[in-house]
C-alpha cells in the first residue's frame, strides 16, 4: 500500500490486516487504511472491488448476512470495533450510515428524524420541546426544514428521492455520530438531486469524518479531499484526491482513472 501523503491528522478509522470472507469467497485482503478525521475520503474502484464491503465493515452492518467472517481489526476513534466486548449498538451510535437507495423508515418525517435519538436516549426523559428542537436542527442542517416544516407528520416515503436521501442524512444527526459512511449516496438521484446532496455532504465536512463510496469519478474528484483506490479486495492507492487523479503512483490507478476498465 502506498504511504499516505496527506497531512498528519489523527485517523478516525484505522483498519489493520483486515480480511473478510463471504462464505468461502474472500472479498478483502489485508486492508490497512487510515481514514483521517474530519475530512471527506472517497473510496473508488471497479464493481466488486470490495469498496462497499469495506465500508459496510466499518459499522459491522455486513454481519446481518450471517455468513461473513472477518479477521484483523478496525479502530474507530482508537477503539477496536471487532473486540469481543464491543456492543454493536454503541458502534452504530458512533458510526452513521447512508445507503445507496434512500431508505426512510415507514414512519412520519418527524419520527424518522427522532428514531435514532429515541433509541439511544432510552431511560432519559427528553422533553417534547427538546425533541422538536432536535428535529428542526437536523432538518435545517440538511436544508429540508423549509420545505417540510408544515408536513412533519406526513409519511417520509411521500418525499422526492432527493428529499428522502437528505432525510436519511438528517436522521443520523441527532445521534451525533463521529463518522458517516455513505454507500453511493447519489446513485439513485437525478443530476440536480446529486448536486444538492453532494453540496450537503460537503457542508458536513469538518464536523464529521465522512467515508464515501462512489462509482462516479467526477464526484470523487470534486467532492472529496482524499481518495482511496481499491482493486480486487485490496487498497492500491491512497492519497490526496488531486494527487490520486493527477499523479497516480500506480499503473492500475492510472488505468482506472483514465477509464480503461471499471
Amino acid at each position: 500500500m502506498a504511504e499516505s501523503t496527506a497531512a498528519p491528522r489523527p485517523a478516525a478509522i484505522a483498519t489493520r490486516g483486515l480480511n473478510l470472507w463471504y462464505g468461502d469467497f474472500q472479498a478483502l485482503f489485508d486492508v490497512n487504511l487510515d481514514v483521517r478525521q474530519g475530512i471527506i475520503t472517497s473510496l473508488i474502484g471497479p464493481s466488486g472491488c470490495g469498496k462497499s464491503t469495506l465500508l459496510r465493515s466499518c459499522n459491522r452492518i455486513n454481519e446481518r448476512l450471517g455468513y461473513v467472517r472477518t479477521t484483523g481489526s478496525i479502530e474507530i476513534l482508537g477503539q477496536d470495533i471487532y473486540a469481543p466486548e464491543v456492543e454493536l449498538v454503541q458502534v452504530r451510535k458512533q458510526v452513521g450510515m447512508v445507503f445507496q437507495r434512500p431508505n426512510p423508515l415507514p414512519l412520519s418525517i418527524r419520527d424518522n428524524i427522532s428514531f435514532g435519538h429515541r433509541l439511544h436516549a432510552r431511560g432519559q426523559r427528553v422533553s417534547r420541546a427538546r425533541r422538536e428542537e432536535l428535529v428542526e436542527d437536523a432538518l435545517r442542517k440538511v436544508l429540508l426544514w423549509d420545505s417540510v416544516k408544515d408536513r412533519l407528520d406526513d409519511p417520509a416515503i411521500e418525499l422526492s428521492l432527493e428529499e428522502q436521501q437528505k432525510l436519511c442524512i438528517a436522521r443520523l444527526l441527532p445521534v451525533k455520530p463521529a463518522v458517516l459512511l455513505m454507500d453511493e449516496p447519489c446513485s439513485a438521484l437525478d443530476p440536480k438531486g446529486t448536486e444538492a446532496v453532494e453540496e450537503l455532504i460537503w457542508e458536513l465536512r469538518g464536523e464529521f469524518t465522512i467515508l464515501i463510496v462512489t462509482h462516479n469519478m467526477a464526484q470523487a474528484r470534486r467532492a472529496s479531499e482524499e481518495t482511496v483506490f481499491m482493486l480486487i479486495g485490496k487498497v492500491i492507492e491512497h492519497g490526496l484526491t488531486e494527487d490520486v487523479f493527477l499523479n497516480p503512483q500506480h499503473r492500475q490507478t492510472a488505468d482506472y482513472i483514465e477509464g480503461r476498465y471499471g
Partner: peptide
C-alpha cells in the same frame, strides 16, 4: 432496507 436502516441507526 427498513431493517437495515434501523439497525444501522443502532436499533
Amino acid at each position: 432496507g427498513y431493517r437495515e436502516a434501523a439497525e444501522a441507526l443502532g436499533a
